[in-house]
């Protein structure tokens, strides 16, 4: 009996102590465990700060036992070295290994010979879903200093959706899927922090402060961990070229109004609806039965709410291929296909 109890006690003790380096987030049971696990892997990063009014701090996470850190590429990292505060208050210099301009991910290396840092597993895989509970760890507003734990926010994953966002007039380069959350992660210093599921598995890296192009509101989001992982790989292997090819690949000879044979009502206000003004006789538009006053609501699968939307959509469609349009005629939705003239 005593032996059995001993085994149980030792076992449960081991269970608690065994969570230092091993990346066994799955074993973590209580919030306390998860929190400890996350805090040990979170760091505070201090740099020079680029321009006035911009904070000189951000968040980051350890991603290897040798002290590699993933964070966001920003003006905070403008100098080649930055100061990193570990969870235990240890202050270390770190050098910027590289940055990925597509995802705005940066990798730092702690200037140390130590090789037993606790870290988040870059190969961790999840299946997130809308409504999934999430935890966000970051040093937003530099609330935590020294060995103080970083701030944790809780919330749910709102939706997995393409990043359609901008800061001022600058559009985000990455337009792939991100994890939008309902916790207020969009705050100074939060970028570079980590989004976790409730078992401590990394889901993503908290993104920079951006406003949604759809809602006009500040966007709380994280870059999927898989993307971060690939980005870190690219940086460490020096193969950043592969990131750039993902950028907008526009066709060389895109479709045009002239080629398709219709004109829109002139754009006079910001949200001029894309009504067809004229259809050229004998054109692809005429053959497809398009008519003046038809309102184009989708072009090649892209939703078009304005004159400008139609122009942008056309630029992405090759000029020598059929184009599908959805138009509103009266209160009827009509689908048509426009076939360019020079097709066989």
């Amino acid at each position: 009996m005593n032996k059995w109890l001993l085994a149980l006690a030792v076992g449960s003790f081991l269970c608690v102590t065994n969570m230092t380096h091993a990346q066994k987030a799955v074993d973590l049971v209580s919030f306390g465990d998860v929190n400890r696990y996350a805090q040990e892997r979170s760091v505070k990063i201090y740099g020079v700060g680029g321009l006035r009014q911009l904070e000189a701090y951000q968040s980051g996470v350890l991603v290897s036992a040798e002290g590699y850190i993933a964070t966001v590429a920003s003006l905070v990292l403008d100098e080649d070295t930055v100061t990193v505060l570990l969870n235990n208050g240890q202050r270390l210099e770190a050098s910027v290994v590289g940055t990925d301009p597509l995802l705005d991910v940066a990798v730092l290396k702690l200037d140390t010979e130590e090789t037993d840092f606790p870290y988040f597993d870059l190969t961790a895989e999840q299946s997130p879903y809308e409504g999934m509970r999430v935890l966000a760890y970051s040093n937003l507003y530099n609330v935590a200093t020294g060995d103080e734990p970083v701030s944790v926010l809780h919330g749910v994953l709102s939706v997995i959706a393409p990043l359609e966002a901008r800061r001022g007039s600058f559009s985000s380069r990455y337009r792939g899927d991100v994890y939008i959350v309902d916790a207020a992660t969009n705050n100074p210093g939060a970028a570079g922090g980590v989004l976790l599921d409730t078992s401590g598995q990394p889901l993503g890296m908290l993104g920079k402060e951006l406003k949604s192009e759809l809602t006009g509101t500040w966007l709380n989001y994280a870059m999927p961990w898989e993307q971060v992982s690939q980005s870190v790989d690219r940086i460490l292997s020096g193969d950043l070229g592969s990131a750039i090819v993902d950028l907008d690949q526009l066709p060389e000879n895109p479709a045009t109004f002239a080629g398709l044979g219709f004109r829109l009502v002139p754009s006079v206000v910001a949200r001029t609806p894309p009504y067809i003004d004229t259809v050229l006789p004998g054109s692809p538009a005429a053959s497809a039965g398009l008519m003046p006053d038809d309102l184009i609501i989708a072009l090649a699968g892209m939703r078009t709410g304005t004159h400008v939307d139609v122009e942008k959509a056309l630029m992405q469609v090759p000029g020598d291929q059929p184009v599908r349009l959805t138009v509103l005629r009266g209160n009827m939705l009509v689908e048509v296909e426009l076939v360019p003239m020079n097709l066989p």
């Binding site: 609806p273 709410g305 304005t306």
Partner: peptide, 19 residues
């Protein structure tokens, strides 16, 4: 709801442009 047309600002407040 895909909202087509309409204002982009009202009383100096920017309105959402997405669905």
């Amino acid at each position: 709801l895909q909202i087509i047309g309409g204002a982009d600002r009202l009383n100096d407040v920017s309105l959402a442009s997405g669905p």
